[in-house]
Simulated scan of single mutants.
Amino acid sequence: MAAETLIKAARKLSKAVDRLQFSEPVTHVYNPLAYARRSHEAYLSMIGDDVSVVFLGMNPGPWGMAQTGVPFGEIAAVRDWMQIDEPIGRPDNEHEKRPVEGLQCARSEVSGRRLWGLFQEKFETPEAFFAKHFVLNYCPLVFMEASARNRTPDKLPAAEKTPLDSVCDEHLRTVLKAIKPEHAVGVGAYAEACLRRVVKDIDEPPQVSRILHPSPASPAANRDWAGTATKQLCEAGLW
C-alpha cells in the first residue's frame, strides 16, 4: 500500500513542479520524475511494509538521480545492487554539458556512492536495507545555469522558492503520513530544516535528526564520511 501511495504522490508532484516557472540565472530544469518515471517508480516499489527510518536529501544531483531517477542514484548502486534497469528518457531542454545518459552514464556521483556504499556495507542486500529504511529527496528538480553549474533550491529567489516549497512540503507530508516512520533523517542541514517544518503538521511525527551530507564539497565529508554518519546514526538511536 505504501508503494502505491508513493507512486501516486510522485506523479502528482511531477505535474505540480512542471507548472512552476524559474528565471535566470537558472536556464535549464530537469524533472527526472517525468523522463525517468519508470525507473523512479521501480525504486518506490522497493519500499518495505514496516519502514521505520526515512532519509531525506535536498534534490537530485546531475550524475545521480538526474541519470537514474533514484534519490542519490549512483549508477552502480542502482544498476548492480538494486537491480533497477528501466528505460530512461531525456529532459526536453537538455544542457549539452549535462546530458542524460541513464545507466550508460560513465560519471559517478560521489554523494550517492558514499551514501549507498554505506548502506550496502552495513546491510549487504537491498532487501535487508529496504525492509526498515527508505531514501527520498525533498525537491525532485535539477537546476542548472547557462554554464551548466548546478544551482541548489536554497539559492532560488523567494518568489520561486516559496511555491516550490509549498508543493514539496505537501508531497513530503503525504509520504511521511503514508510510511509512518519512527525516525526521519535529514541528509544535511537543508533537508533537516524541511523535515522539521513539515512534521509540525503531522499528528504522530517522526523523530527528526541529521547526518553529515556526503558531498565532496564539504571538507568534513571528505574525512571518513561513512564513519561520521554511522556515529551520528548510533547517537540518534537509529543504529
Rank of each mutant, 00 (worst) to 15 (best):
P25T: 12
P25N: 08
H28T: 14
V29Y: 04
V29S: 06
Y30D: 06
N31Q: 08
L33F: 14
A34V: 15
A36S: 13
A36F: 08
R38F: 04
R38G: 04
S39V: 09
S39Y: 07
H40L: 04
H40I: 00
E41W: 09
Y43I: 06
Y43S: 11
L44E: 07
L44P: 08
S45N: 15
I47Q: 05
G48Q: 11
D50K: 15
V51T: 13
V51N: 10
S52M: 07
V53R: 04
V54Y: 05
F55I: 03
F55G: 02
L56M: 09
G57N: 05
G57Q: 03
M58P: 00
N59K: 02
N59I: 02
N59Q: 14
P60C: 11
G61K: 05
W63H: 14
G64R: 01
G64L: 05
M65T: 03
M65F: 05
A66Y: 00
Q67W: 01
Q67R: 04
Q67Y: 07
T68M: 10
T68V: 11
T68G: 06
G69A: 08
V70Q: 02
V70P: 03
F72T: 03
G73D: 01
E74K: 02
I75P: 03
I75A: 02
I75L: 08
I75Y: 02
I75F: 03
A76D: 14
A76H: 12
A77V: 01
A77S: 15
V78L: 09
V78K: 00
V78R: 04
D80G: 01
D80P: 01
W81C: 07
M82R: 01
M82W: 14
Q83E: 15
D85R: 12
E86L: 01
E86C: 06
P87Y: 10
I88Q: 09
I88T: 10
R90V: 14
P91V: 11
D92M: 06
D92R: 10
N93L: 14
N93H: 14
H95W: 12
H95I: 13
K97F: 06
R98N: 08
R98D: 00
P99Y: 07
P99A: 07
V100A: 05
V100Y: 03
G102N: 05
G102R: 03
Q104R: 15
Q104E: 15
R107Q: 15
V110E: 10
V110Y: 11
V110W: 08
G112L: 09
G117T: 07
G117H: 07
L118D: 02
L118H: 08
Q120G: 12
Q120Y: 04
E121K: 13
E121Q: 14
K122V: 12
K122C: 05
K122D: 11
F123E: 02
F123N: 06
F123A: 07
E124V: 13
T125I: 03
P126Q: 10
P126L: 10
A128P: 00
F129V: 09
F129P: 06
F129S: 07
F129K: 05
F129A: 03
A131F: 00
A131L: 05
K132T: 14
H133Y: 13
H133S: 12
F134G: 02
F134P: 06
L136D: 03
Y138D: 02
Y138I: 01
Y138K: 07
C139I: 09
P140L: 13
L141V: 09
